[in-house]
C-alpha cells in the first residue's frame, strides 16, 4: 500500500499555477526522487505535502488519511519531516539545540536521547560540533544538521529539497550515501533534486516534473536509459 498518495493536486500562488494535476505515490520503504529543472514545481509539491501551502484542488493522503488542509505542525505530527531548500537552520542556536528542536511530537521527545545518538552515529561531525552555533558550520555540515533535525522527528517519510545545492561534489557524495543508509534502515524517502544523475542513481523510482506536470515516471533503470532524459538532463 502506498504510504503517500497525491491525486490530481493543483497548487497556485495567487493566479500563477505552479503545479497542475500531479498524481504520484510513494510506497513504504521506497526512495523516490522528483527531478526536473528550476521552476518545474518540485519545491511547491513538497510544500503542499508539508502543509506549508494549501492545494487548490486534489487530495493528498498519508497512510490512508487525508492530510491536505492540515497545518504543518499537524503534518509533522503524522510522521512527515521536511528538510527544506536552503536548510533553514536556527543560525544563532547550537547544533545540539537545532537537533533537539526537531523532536516536536511527544513520541519523538520521549525517544530524543536515543535518536540523538543515532544521528551522531550517522553524522559524527555533528557530534564533534554539537556546541557550535549552527550558523558557523560549513555548508555540508549545515545540510547534515538539517537532515539530522528532520530525523529527530522520527519520521516515517523524510522529504528533502535539493540537499546537494551549493555543496562540493565530495560532500554531495557523503550526503547521498547517508540518505541511502537512512532508507535502508527503514525510513521512506522522497527526494527533490536538480542533480539528476546522482538522484537517479540513488533512487528506486523517479518522477520527472516539467512545467508543473509529470512528464515521465518510472523505475530508475528505465529513466537512466531514457534517451529524452539523457538529452535534457544528463547532457549526453
Amino acid at each position: 500500500m502506498a504510504l503517500l498518495r497525491l491525486d490530481d493536486v493543483e497548487v497556485a500562488y495567487g493566479d500563477m499555477v505552479a503545479v497542475r494535476g500531479v498524481s504520484m505515490t510513494v510506497g513504504t520503504g521506497e526512495l523516490v526522487a522528483i527531478i526536473g529543472s528550476n521552476g518545474a514545481g518540485k519545491t511547491t509539491t513538497l510544500r503542499a505535502i508539508s502543509g506549508l501551502l494549501r492545494p487548490r484542488r486534489g487530495r493528498i493522503e498519508f497512510d490512508g488519511a487525508r492530510i491536505d488542509g492540515l497545518t504543518s505542525s499537524d503534518v509533522v505530527g503524522r510522521g512527515i519531516a521536511h528538510v527544506p531548500e536552503g536548510r533553514q537552520l536556527f543560525p544563532t542556536m547550537s547544533v545540539l539545540e537545532n537537533l533537539e528542536l526537531g523532536a516536536r511530537t511527544p513520541a519523538a521527545r520521549a525517544a530524543r536521547d536515543g535518536t540523538l545518538k543515532s544521528v551522531f552515529d550517522l553524522f559524527p561531525r555533528l557530534g564533534e560540533r554539537r556546541r557550535q552555533l549552527a550558523g558557523s558550520l560549513s555548508g555540508g555540515e549545515q545540510q547534515m544538521c538539517a537532515i539530522g533535525r528532520a530525523l529527530m522527528a522520527l519520521p516515517r517519510l523524510l522529504m528533502l529539497d535539493e540537499p546537494s545545492l551549493g555543496l562540493a561534489p565530495v560532500m554531495v557524495g557523503a550526503i547521498f550515501d547517508n540518505l541511502a543508509r537512512v532508507n535502508r534502515d527503514g525510513t521512506t524517502v522522497l527526494l527533490v533534486e536538480q542533480n539528476v544523475l546522482r538522484a537517479l542513481r540513488l533512487c528506486h523510482r523517479a518522477y520527472v516534473l516539467e512545467n508543473g506536470t509529470i512528464a515521465l515516471e518510472g523505475p530508475r533503470d528505465r529513466l537512466l536509459a531514457d534517451e529524452g532524459i539523457k538529452r535534457a538532463y544528463l547532457g549526453r
Binding site: 508539508s50 497545518t71 543560525p91
Partner: peptide
C-alpha cells in the same frame, strides 16, 4: 525550557521553525 527554545527558534528563523512543525 522547551517553549523558551521554541521562542528563540521562531525569532531566529520563523520559516525554519514552521517547517519542523512548530506551532
Amino acid at each position: 525550557s522547551d517553549i523558551g527554545r521554541q521562542m528563540r527558534a521562531v525569532a531566529d528563523n520563523g520559516y525554519g521553525a514552521q517547517v519542523i512543525g512548530t506551532d
